[in-house]
Simulated scan of single mutants.
Amino acid sequence: MTMKDMLDGLPELNSPYALTSEQIEAYRRDGHTMLRGVAADHEVQAYRTVISGLVRESNDQTKPLHERDTYGKAFIQIINLWRKSEAVKRFVLAERFGRIAAELMGVDAVRVYHDQALFKEPGGGHTPWHQDQIYWPMDTDKTITLWMPLVPITEAVGSMTFASESHRKGLIDRIEISDESHKTLAQYIEGKGFKLVNYGGMAAGDATFHGGWTLHAAPGNPTDTMREVMTIIYYADGTKVAEPKSSAQRNDLNAYFPGQKPGEEAGTDLNPIVYRRQ
Rank of each mutant, 00 (worst) to 15 (best):
S247K: 14
E121C: 02
L65K: 13
T223G: 05
I100F: 07
Y235T: 05
G259S: 10
P272W: 11
P11V: 01
A242D: 11
P11G: 01
I144K: 07
R90M: 09
W213Y: 15
T154Q: 04
N198S: 14
R250T: 14
A242I: 07
L65H: 07
P152A: 08
A255Q: 13
D8P: 00
S247F: 02
I233F: 05
L35Y: 09
E57K: 15
D179S: 07
N80M: 10
Y71P: 00
N221L: 03
M202K: 06
H210I: 08
L35T: 04
K195Q: 12
D139E: 14
K240L: 15
P137R: 05
A101D: 06
M1T: 09
I175E: 01
D60R: 14
Y47T: 06
H216D: 03
K245R: 12
V157T: 09
V151D: 15
T33Y: 01
M160H: 08
N80Q: 14
E95V: 04
Q249P: 01
T184W: 00
E103N: 12
T145N: 13
W82V: 05
P152D: 15
H216I: 09
H66C: 08
G106S: 07
K63S: 12
I51E: 05
T154Y: 00
G170M: 03
D141T: 10
L118P: 02
S247G: 05
F75V: 04
V88T: 12
F194R: 08
L150I: 12
T231G: 08
S164K: 13
D179T: 01
K120I: 02
P244M: 08
K195N: 10
